[in-house]
């Protein structure tokens, strides 16, 4: 899946081995929580209130990337606002899947969560690039794509199925790579990455049967 490596491959593998050992040396916590997550879906939710009052409130930004200067993204917000988003090596980058800052292109859309800095930039904890969340009806199923209709006016959308990435959830079940149970005519929630080049969507997750 994702391969974020700070150094050449060999060192990356050694680093992972070290981190695996560290991870397995940690305490085991058993049980379920009722709280939601901070992953891709959360980009659409209100910034989650921190459980720890010591942590500053999260800042939130969205818009189109107009320029990339080193590790700073210049973002034009949808409401005429401007943001400077500072990426660090602790910033998670989602673009269909967890990836690296090199995948971010000028013209991409972006949601970012981070912390306001004194110089006016936002130090990003997490950015979601081109993320879209659509409620659609499945109109057609092909080997590598779903034909979808979106909104009250049935706007046609092509959802591309990406091998080893696209997952499905049926009736609230666990996410699975089994896509064969998607049916024509079903209502589906599509979480994915918009493709500026052809206006299609790479599907990360299709949720049906709710």
């Amino acid at each position: 899946m994702s391969h974020r490596q700070d150094s050449p491959e060999r060192r990356g593998i050694d680093r992972r081995r070290f981190l695996t050992t560290a991870a397995l040396g940690g305490a085991t916590i058993v049980g379920a929580s009722a709280l939601g997550g901070l992953d891709a879906d959360a980009a659409f939710a209100a910034p989650m209130p921190s459980l720890d009052p010591a942590i500053a409130k999260s800042a939130f930004a969205e818009g189109r990337i107009t320029a990339i200067n080193g590790s700073v993204l210049e973002v034009a917000g949808s409401y005429g606002d401007q943001h400077l988003i500072q990426l660090t090596n602790a910033t998670s980058v989602w673009k269909l899947r967890p990836t690296t800052a090199e995948e971010i292109k000028v013209g991409d859309g972006l949601y970012a969560r981070g912390v306001d800095m004194p110089d006016g930039t936002i130090a990003a904890d997490a950015v979601w690039v081109n993320i879209v969340n659509l409620y659609c009806t499945v109109k057609g199923i092909a080997k590598d794509r779903l034909h979808l209709a979106h909104g009250a006016q049935d706007h046609a959308v092509v959802g591309r199925i990406v091998a080893d990435t696209t997952t499905a959830s049926y009736l609230g079940g666990a996410l699975t790579s089994d896509l064969s149970r998607v049916r024509i005519g079903q209502s589906a929630q599509i979480l994915g990455a918009w493709r500026p080049e052809d206006d299609a969507i790479d599907i990360a997750r299709v949720t049906v049967g709710h």
Binding site: S2, R4, L35, L38, D39, A40, A42, S50, L51, D52, A54, I55, A90, T91, S92, W94, P98, D125, A126, W128
Partner: peptide
């Protein structure tokens, strides 16, 4: 969650 800041890295 009080410690985690990023999404999956």
């Amino acid at each position: 969650s009080p410690i985690v800041r990023s999404a999956l890295l």
